[in-house]
Amino acid sequence: MTTDTYIYPFVKMHGLGNDFVIFDARKQSLEMTKEHTRLVANRRHGVGCDQLIVMHSSETADIRMEIWNADGTQAGACGNATRCVGQILLQETNKKSVSIETIAGLLTAQADDTLISVNMGKANLEWQSIPLAQAMPTDTLDYQKGPLSAPGCVNMGNPHAVFFVDDAEAIDLERWGPEIETDPLFPERVNVSIVSVSDGVLRQRVWERGAGITEACGSGACAALVAASRRGLVGRKATVTLDGGDLTIEWLDNGTVQMTGSATHSFHGEIRL
């Protein structure tokens, strides 16, 4: 860490209960480590969050965003965090649209009435891009774990396995989520979603790699819509209902996925690292 002080201001935000501690490294240099991430994310000894976000200056976008899971691993994409960072930038710049550089690529965010709409980039569907350990069709994967089988797999900047069931509430996600996340079939681990479809609405519960069960997952909601649409369960636009609330997801004709939902400030604070 290269700085003269160890006190760092942050903002706590959430998207549908998926919560983040956001640091602005444009104003104060910060090199995040796994140990720092685990400290900040700890809900007893730190601030508490599902993911930690660091905003950096960017030569190609309005900002560069780093995403760290609660276990200290780095993530490529997070839709709810992108909406939160997008809201910060939109208020800061008064622009109609802002660009956000991530490991997964360049994302854009804009205001949509009281909500934030983010283009999450292209849905990657090839087995190599998920990635899987071997060549397999990704619309209906030949895979089973306990009561769950035949997921649809989508990479939205991070890998997702979406299992369709009759009742999403009936699945013991805490039992099966970690087993599927670390299965050798998924060499970079995988986010696990349980989805049931009723009247064109997707009910989704999510186990996030490196974070566990979260109230919402933006990239997961995008993956769920794409996987459901590939099977003809819904069209290319639908509401996804997560534990924390609703997102509107649309799989656009150009292959990218648009996500619209809330971004909420919780509080500001400081922490010593």
Rank of each mutant, 00 (worst) to 15 (best):
T73Q: 13
V40P: 00
A61P: 09
Q28V: 02
A81T: 06
T82I: 07
M32E: 08
F23H: 12
S57P: 00
V85F: 10
R38I: 06
K96M: 13
V47E: 01
R26A: 04
R64K: 15
G76T: 03
M55L: 12
S97R: 14
E66T: 01
R38W: 00
L52E: 02
R26C: 09
L39Q: 11
T33F: 06
C84R: 11
E35L: 05
R26L: 04
S58Y: 01
N80A: 05
R26F: 05
K27W: 00
E66H: 13
E31Q: 14
E66D: 15
G46V: 03
K95H: 11
K27Y: 00
G72H: 00
L30W: 06
T73D: 07
Q87M: 13
T73N: 13
L30M: 12
E35V: 08
L90K: 07
L90G: 10
R26N: 04
N80Y: 10
I63V: 15
S57E: 14
V40N: 02
D24P: 15
E66R: 10
L90I: 09
D50G: 06
K34A: 15
F23I: 13
K95C: 08
T33D: 00
K96D: 15
I22S: 02
S57A: 14
E59Q: 13
G79M: 03
M65V: 11
E92H: 10
H36Y: 12
S58M: 03
I63Q: 02
F23D: 11
A61K: 04
R64I: 03
I53L: 15
D19A: 05
Q74F: 00
V21L: 10
E66C: 04
I67M: 13
N69T: 11
L89M: 13
V54R: 13
R83G: 00
L52D: 03
R44N: 15
K34E: 14
L39P: 07
V40M: 12
S97D: 07
S29K: 14
G46T: 02
E66W: 14
M32G: 03
L89K: 08
K96C: 10
K27L: 06
A75P: 01
E35H: 05
Q91W: 08
C78L: 08
R26D: 06
R26M: 03
G76R: 09
V54C: 12
D19I: 02
R38Q: 14
V47S: 02
C78A: 10
R83D: 02
A70F: 01
Q51I: 03
D19Q: 05
M65H: 02
L89C: 05
M55W: 00
A70G: 07
E35D: 13
L52Q: 04
V47D: 00
S58R: 03
Q91E: 15
V40L: 15
I88K: 11
Q28A: 04
R44L: 08
I67N: 08
R43P: 06
I67L: 12
R43G: 00
T60M: 12
I22R: 07
L90N: 05
F20G: 05
N42T: 08
L30P: 11
T73Y: 10
G72W: 04
V85A: 12
C49V: 00
S29Q: 12
Q87Y: 07
I22A: 09
D71M: 09
I22Q: 08
A77L: 05
K34N: 10
E35S: 07
F23M: 12
M32R: 12
D50Y: 01
I67F: 07
E92Q: 15
N94Y: 07
N42Q: 07
A70Y: 06
G79T: 05
C84S: 02
A61L: 10
F20S: 01
R43T: 04
